[in-house]
Design a protein around this nucleic acid. Structure first.
Length: 910
RNA sequence: GGGGGAUUAGCUCAGUUGGUUAGAGCGCUUGCUUGACAUGCAAGAGGUCGGCGGUUCGAAUCCGCCAUUCCCCA
């Protein structure tokens, strides 16, 4: 059944209709089908309150392409959706809103605050799912998971307990990255180093043992002077060798502090003397440890100075305190100079304030299965695309440090550790660690902290299925869908997420084992292929941000260009793994291509005869046994090539090539050449070529729709149904995409011969037509469709080819008559492999212009001949290069030479 | 300081193991209501592939150095 297409394509109508139909039919549902291969992708869960931005468009379009491709390849595809609670990001937002309401989380208390947070996530959550639906994302929405779902929380807690039991989780007191705004510890990955223009303050401390002698010290942080418990010099620094072991005066609060020698000091930095503040700097902390220096914490959790810092400083904000400290140094006559200094300062990723190294007790994870995680990538069990990201991943693993997983936040999975009331929390004797808590809760109090968001999302590939569970359904699904097929994400979360998922999968998806074999690694990894794409930037290469206003709303773009147009456009401009410079006009190509597809199908309908059965076999049957004319053979040959190209591109993850290949075939080959040539055949009455042209068109369009469907699902579904390709009302995805090799066999079995030689002859015909058009354009008669052309064929074979295709040449070149002649003189002509084509001009030829044009061409060919001759004369080339290359060079030279001679003759004849 | 990219037409990018006269889209110029499509059709201009050296019969492609530039990590 076919339906007549409307005159113009209305994306909104078509997209809304089909998305609803698909979702209601359950065709996105991922099911265990043991007779089919599974293909699974876990969505990188967006923040629960997130809104769709261009990065999501790219990431999810790519995933949808892989998923839909898997469906047309008859795999059982599952695209698992969900959202992330984004502990710190969400909590920051909720706290902001509380502040507006004149309250705070501390005022509300934990329970009330969590109620508010849930309200917030219910209210703002899930919007992005509908936005993804607008984009056409074919997720199995029934399964949607949220990392704060009770079942998911239970998975997270179970993993903590399990990893604790296995000895990977411990409590430690050390310097952490402290965010004074959010008042929580952060992991190293959440700290962003930013270059800052600061000051370097040079000051002098008096030596206790030698009054009147001073030592000069450089620092960027004078506000921590009160926490100094020593100063350090390099042991090989002769300038200060005699001072080691002596003391100097800390100016405020005035106290004697010791001078130590330590290799961590950079001799060449500043004066070569370092003030040591063990409580507020990692290097200083380490030095202090080595020399047994006192640790004096002078700051409050919110970044203000505390009472220890002294009366003047207590309660003062840290940057104000810096100014005051400088002032005091000056008053004491201890400030030597201030210079400008550029250094890198760590900022909290979420709160965007400088972090403060702070001594505190936190939970740490010693990463499990680090060696296996490396091996999985090194031995190819997991492949990154593009491959260069493997180096980045391995480099990080080689320098890995324990992960601080506790956060002083409330929104998240609470750490399943209980402390005996009134007992020392540092002593593991007083801990209870379990999923369900102690049996006598009245005697215990639970750890107040929650887990880092990424400590829950790193379980995403299996916790979503219900792990850990003895439920047979959970086991069967994990068995079928895990390891998932691939992960599609940006490079910015390789450390945060990708690497951690790999390690948690290796540790937890199986029995506890010290080390894993390659076979075990293969079963436990969370995915096989990691497709890494770039970030979307604006046309000037800047990051997209709300404040710059350079971030278009994808929903507006969908309104303007259609979801399919946007999808095609964004994939089309996405280079191979590097960042994408987005400019709205660059996605017009997507919308235009939709229009082209639509109109090509409309034209096909207007040619009539689309009421019959349109299955692949039925169409091929219409061609069975007949000798295809040149163009039919050519376009089907190109179709086979295109199918093959696309197969290779998917296999190699060359997503940046897909749109180019398909656009080139459908627009450049099918519409611009085949359809135009077919118009000539469609005029023929009672001629087998007429029906063959229709069948070839049907075949080309049908297979193109199948190939394009993953990129442009809505319009292809609409055309699939309207053109009558749908069998029994089924969706395009269920029709089964035939492989190039299978299609070739089908052709053979039906006696449809597709030959390469014939396709090459049509390429020559196309060249001849192009030359004729060019000559017409040169003589300003491009728009005349009734010119007379003369052709002098190169040889008898060429003559036959031209005669066989005379009708289409006439039509495509715009000629009323074409005569084959032995010899033509005094007319402008152009040389092609098949022969020279001349334009019959009633008016006089512009001899000078023609001479100039031909001379230019002659010069170009002359150079090519020189290069070719030189190469072939070189015995080293002839001896060493492969015979096919030499043969090709000979053939090329002969053809060039023939053209050259012909043009020289033309030039002479003028 | 360590590591990873990038450098090809005015712009954004392709260019698979080295092998014809280096391609595409956009932009630009010219001409077109050609049996669906002006979101279209046709023709055209435009590149010593960042520089220097090396390997090779042959280099945009492999190697080295340099320059410019972006990113990650410390």
């Amino acid at each position: 059944m076919s339906t007549e297409l409307e005159q113009s394509y209305d994306p909104k109508k078509v997209e809304t209709k089909w998305y609803k139909t698909w979702e209601e039919s359950g065709c996105f549902d991922g099911e265990v089908k043991n007779d089919r291969d599974s293909f699974t992708i876990m969505i990188p869960p967006p923040n629960v309150t997130g809104m769709l931005h261009m990065g999501h468009v790219l990431d999810n379009t790519l995933q949808d392409i892989f998923i839909r491709r898997a469906r047309v390849e008859s795999k059982s595809a599952l695209w698992f959706p969900g959202t992330d609670h984004a502990s710190i990001a969400t909590q920051v937002k909720v706290e902001q809103s509380l502040r507006k309401q004149g309250t705070s989380r501390r005022e509300l208390g934990r329970e009330k605050f969590l109620e508010k947070a849930w309200e917030w996530s219910d209210e703002h959550g899930g919007i992005i799912f509908n936005q993804l639906r607008n984009l056409g994302a074919s997720c199995d929405w029934r399964r949607s998971r949220f990392t704060m779902d009770p079942e998911y929380q239970r998975s997270v807690i179970s993993s903590f307990v399990e990893l604790y039991k296995r000895g990977f989780i411990y409590r430690g007191k050390r310097l952490v990255n402290w965010c004074p705004a959010s008042q929580t510890a952060l992991s190293n990955e959440e700290v962003i180093m930013k270059p800052q223009k600061g000051k370097l303050y040079k000051m002098r401390y008096e030596i206790v043992e030698e009054p009147g002698r001073f030592v000069e010290i450089s620092t960027t942080r004078p506000e921590t002077i009160m926490g100094d418990t020593g100063i350090a010099v390099h042991p090989e620094d002769e300038r200060y060798a005699d001072l080691v072991g002596k003391h100097c005066w800390r100016p405020f609060p005035r106290a004697e502090i010791v001078i130590v020698a330590d290799r961590a000091v950079e001799k060449d930095f500043g004066t070569g003397v370092l003030k040591v503040t063990p409580a507020h700097d990692q290097v200083d902390f380490d030095i202090g440890k080595r020399h047994d220096l006192e640790v004096i914490d002078v700051m409050n959790p919110d970044g203000t100075l505390n009472d220890t810092a002294g009366e003047e400083f207590a309660g003062m904000e840290r940057f104000k305190a810096r100014k005051l400290a400088v002032l005091k140094l000056e008053e004491l006559g201890l400030l030597v100079e201030i210079e400008d200094y550029d250094n890198n300062v760590g900022f909290s990723e979420r709160a965007d304030v400088p972090i403060e190294p702070r001594l505190s007790e936190q939970w740490y994870l010693k990463y499990p299965k680090v060696e296996e995680a490396k091996r999985a990538v090194e031995n190819g069990t997991i492949k990154f695309h593009p491959k260069r990201w493997e180096k980045v991943y391995l480099h990080w693993l080689n320098n890995i440090q324990d992960w601080c997983i506790s956060r002083q936040l409330w929104w998240g999975q609470r750490i399943p550790v209980w402390y005996k009331k009134g007992a020392d929390r540092s002593d593991p004797e007083n801990w209870h660690v379990s999923v369900d808590g102690p049996g006598d809760p009245e005697n215990w109090e639970q750890d107040e902290d929650v887990l880092d968001t990424w400590a829950s999302s790193n379980l995403w590939p299996f916790a979503t299925f219900g792990w850990p569970s003895d439920d047979p359904k959970v086991k069967a699904e994990l068995d079928y869908f895990y390891p998932t097929s691939m992960l599609v994400t940006g490079f910015d979360i390789i450390f945060f997420w990708v690497a951690r998922m790999i390690m948690s999968g290796l540790e937890l998806m199986g029995e506890e084992k010290e080390t894993l074999t390659d076979e075990e690694i293969e079963k436990r990894v969370p995915f096989k292929d990691v497709f890494i794409h770039g970030l979307i930037r604006d046309s000037k290469g800047r990051k997209m941000s709300k404040s710059l206003g350079n971030s278009p709303d994808p929903l507006d773009l969908i309104k303007k260009y259609g979801a399919d147009g946007l999808r095609f456009g964004i994939i089309n401009i996405a280079p191979n793994g590097s960042d994408i410079l987005f400019a709205e006009e660059r996605i017009e190509i997507g919308r235009n291509f939709c229009t082209k597809l639509w109109n090509a199908c409309r034209f096909r309908q207007m040619a009539g005869g689309v009421s019959g059965e349109q299955s692949l076999e039925a169409i091929v049957d219409r061609l069975a046994g007949s000798q295809l004319e040149g163009y039919g053979n050519w376009i089907l040959f190109r179709l086979l090539q295109t199918i093959e190209d696309i197969e290779g591109q998917f296999a190699r993850f060359e997503m940046h090539q897909l749109t180019h290949t398909l656009h080139n075939f459908f627009w450049g080959d099918f519409c611009d050449w085949y359809v135009e040539a077919a118009k000539a055949m469609l005029q023929l009455k009672d001629d087998p070529r007429h029906d063959a042209a229709l069948a070839v068109s049907d075949l080309s369009i049908r297979q193109s729709l199948l190939l394009l469907h993953p990129i442009m699902p809505h319009i292809t579904e609409e055309l699939w149904s309207s053109m009558g390709y749908s069998e029994n009302g089924g969706f395009l995805q269920d029709s089964g995409l035939i492989k190039a090799s299978e299609l070739r066999s089908l052709f053979e079995s039906k006696g449809v011969k597709i030959d390469e030689g014939g396709a090459q002859r049509i390429e020559q015909v196309k060249e001849l037509i192009t030359q004729a058009r060019a000559t017409k354009a040169e003589y300003k008669v491009a728009s005349k469709r009734d010119v007379t052309l003369f052709v002098t064929p190169t040889d008898a074979a060429s003559s036959t080819v031209i005669e066989d295709n005379l009708d289409t040449i006439k039509r495509l070149a715009g000629a009323a008559t074409i005569e084959l002649r032995e010899k033509v003189e005094n007319l402008p002509g152009s040389v092609s492999a098949l022969g020279t084509v001349y334009l019959d001009l009633s008016s006089a030829v512009d001899v000078e212009a023609e001479k100039a044009r031909l001379s230019k061409e002659l010069e170009r060919l002359g150079k090519a001949i020189q290069a070719g001759t030189g190469k072939l004369k070189n015995p080293k080339f002839v001896d060493k290069a492969p015979p096919t290359v030499v043969e090709g060079a000979r053939k090329q030279l002969a053809e060039t030479q023939a053209k050259h001679d012909e043009i020289a003759r033309l030039l002479k004849s003028l």
